[in-house]
Design a protein around this nucleic acid. Structure first.
Lengths: 252, 252
DNA sequence: AAGTGGTCTAGACCACCGA
DNA sequence: CGGTGGTCTAGACCACTTT
């Protein structure tokens, strides 16, 4: 099939063996950049793992791990007896564990926020179940309108347990919810999402500047921190002409 | 924090060291079952990797890999200096690389299919780009109505390169597209998906037995095989009251 | 100080593929 | 047959968290 395998060794001349950045990560991130930039072309075959290890002065497991990272991202394909190839076809960014705010920032749009409401309410049955708290216990409810480049994009309704009720409106106007949580030492580790669609209610249509009864893209999410405790339950709706969810799936 | 770590050793008494099933997979799948069934409760702390390895007669890397599988699935959380814990909160199934047909089968619904059209057409610009073929080259276009339990759920429009034009209508009525491709030795490895929403066109509304102009959940997908070649480009729409996409995201 | 997971090494044997 | 990735071993050192 493909004739000579490629390995741009010059990209890996200055690996840092003393710093805190893992070797496999240094290799995989540089390799990823080389692929995304086209420096290594689509369909190219990589050298085998052992020779790469020899050239880089790394053990095979370390090289394997670096390659595996990119296989998991859908950039490379490995086949036993054949070798490792760069996937053909453009690669889209997977849905990551970030907030809409960061999504927009990353794509060079100017995110804006308006806090619509910010109040402590007793948890109803749904909220209590999602957040694993008692029915009737106090939770913080926030509702925000998120926009970009002057257009409203989404209405975000979030519920947080009592311990986060001191998040202020000013905080929320300036930063994304996940950024604020991170700044308080809370790391979101796992999230369960459910994506669907429905008609816009009248107030939602007005806020999003779209037709009443028109289609909205919806996302429900429960997010958990490192220790597995529920941190946030959210119920969001997006203007489908301005937002969509993109994923790369990789079969194992 | 959590007092005594747990390890239900009795679940791992008969590991098969000779068969084709990897040891790490045997361990991780049994562990997964024990967690999903509640045999190991939510929030429980697991024993450390080295003692597990000793008890099972496995090396630490093998045990680590088994655990890592479940971390990636969002069932376990590892923290340095702390240990490994079962995540609290229910875990939903991630979006997997399967077709709608298999999704429905797995959830014990009775999938039905009606092939609406099945024809060879020249590729327009969009299709040609997605499938990496020349504009104007022949591609197979199929349009199917998928239902479950008597209700129409989705309209599936798919485009496949020339080499698959011999897929017949009878095949497609009986099985899912991905099943048919697998039977021909084609494995889908990577897919890029984009999920959004829009209004239903009149013909779609009639087919799906829903309101004209009502909301539809949409998904566009390009799927690639082992070698990275584009195998299928699809444009689907779903009744949002009967279908949604569920995902578990895990931060790395 | 003790215990945990995170990384890394230097081998080994096997299954699968192509020539 | 030789070359490839897939799995597995038995160690090692380190960073981080709790006691």
């Amino acid at each position: 099939m493909s004739a000579t395998p490629v390995w741009p060794e010059e990209l890996f001349t200055d690996l840092d063996r003393t710093g805190p950045v893992p070797l496999y990560y240094q290799v995989s991130s540089r390799l990823e950049q080389a692929i995304r930039s086209g420096r290594i072309p689509t369909g190219a075959r990589l050298e085998n793992e052992i020779s790469i290890g020899e050239k880089l002065g790394l053990s095979r497991p370390t090289v394997r791990r670096a390659i595996q990272e990119l296989v998991d991202k859908g950039l490379l394909v490995r086949r036993r007896g054949i070798g490792t190839q760069v996937v053909q076809g453009q690669v889209s960014r997977p849905v990551e564990l970030t907030s809409l705010f960061e999504d927009l920032e990353r794509t060079h749009h100017e995110p804006s926020t308006r806090v619509l409401s910010h109040e402590v309410i007793p948890a109803d049955e749904t909220i209590a179940e999602k957040l694993s708290v008692a029915v009737g216990s106090d939770v913080l409810r926030i509702r925000r309108l998120r926009g970009t480049d002057g257009s409203p994009v989404a209405i975000l309704e979030n519920y947080l347990p009592l311990e986060y009720t001191d998040l202020t409106e000013e905080d929320l106007n300036a930063k994304g919810l996940y950024q604020l949580l991170r700044a308080r030492g809370v790391t979101i580790r796992i999230a369960n999402q459910s994506i669907s669609a429905r008609r816009a209610h009248a107030d939602e249509a007005d806020l999003l500047d779209t037709a009443r009864g028109g289609p909205l893209l919806t996302m429900e999410r429960v997010a958990f921190d490192d220790s597995g405790k529920a941190v946030e339950f959210g119920h969001h709706c997006y203007r489908p002409d301005l937002y969509r969810f993109e994923t790369t799936l990789v079969a194992k």
